[in-house]
Amino acid sequence: MYEYFKGRITQITPGAIVLETKDGIGYKIYPANPYHFEVNQEAQVFVEQIVRETELSLYGFATLTEKQLFNKLLNVSGIGPKSALAILAGAKPADLVAAIENSQVDYLTQFPGVGKKTAQQIVLDLSGKMDDFSSLVDQTSTTFADAESTDSVPSRSNLEDALAALEALGYASRDLTKVKKALVSETGSTSDLISKGLTLLVQG
């Protein structure tokens, strides 16, 4: 139904952003990494609306390619919106396409909610069906400023926000404990720490 929204980011939480359009409506959107954005930023966010018996949600993406990959993953039995979003958060689009086409099951099992059977199902369902992404070589997401707004979450440190965002993606507490130990001495924005945390989680 919706392709994208343009507007101003008015709120950021570890699991979602709120984008207010010019008509004054604020849309709650679930992106892979909310901290790619900043409060008061003008942004265009590609969206996919998921309507189910117990859910009416908007999932957001920095690029059209990410949205298309999200929808591809939803075609796989056993993959829901949250699992698909977690995969996209931890994998570069080109790497994900390569993993599917090369039947790299072990790579796919590193994401939350993806066991060996589900990873095999991803390969079975999507291998040979990724022609739309065959030219994907150096796909990069829209660059967003990393500056942190003190208005968004003033009571949290960047590390706490990053860990909360990873938890929202479905990563287990035991994995986050390991990541916290590795990141406790790191510096950078919340978005930087999320990216470093995802790298550690995917590499195992």
Rank of each mutant, 00 (worst) to 15 (best):
I194H: 02
K178S: 11
L96K: 05
Y59D: 03
R156M: 13
K28Y: 14
L64V: 05
A86V: 05
N71P: 09
P31V: 02
F70Q: 03
S191M: 03
D192T: 14
P31T: 01
I29Y: 15
D131C: 15
N71R: 01
Y2S: 03
N158W: 10
D175I: 00
D161E: 10
Q120H: 04
T190E: 12
I79C: 14
Y59Q: 03
L176A: 11
A32N: 06
E48G: 06
Q49K: 10
D192Q: 11
D175C: 00
T143D: 10
Y30I: 07
S185I: 10
A119T: 02
V202T: 14
Y107N: 08
V105T: 09
G15P: 12
V114K: 02
K92I: 10
E148F: 12
G188R: 05
G24H: 06
S155K: 11
G204Y: 06
A162S: 03
G113W: 04
I122H: 07
G24P: 12
N71A: 11
S191W: 11
I87N: 06
N75D: 15
E48L: 06
K72Y: 12
D138N: 15
N33W: 11
K6T: 08
R52P: 03
I12D: 10
F5R: 13
T118H: 06
V153Y: 12
A182C: 13
K196Y: 11
Q110A: 14
N75C: 14
L159I: 02
Y59H: 01
L136P: 04
Y35K: 10
P31C: 00
A162P: 06
I194M: 02
F111S: 00
A43H: 07
A162M: 00
Q110F: 09
Y35D: 02
G80S: 07
G90M: 09
D161R: 14
L96W: 15
V76D: 08
D151G: 13
L96N: 12
L193S: 10
V51P: 13
T118N: 00
I100A: 04
I50Q: 06
V76T: 12
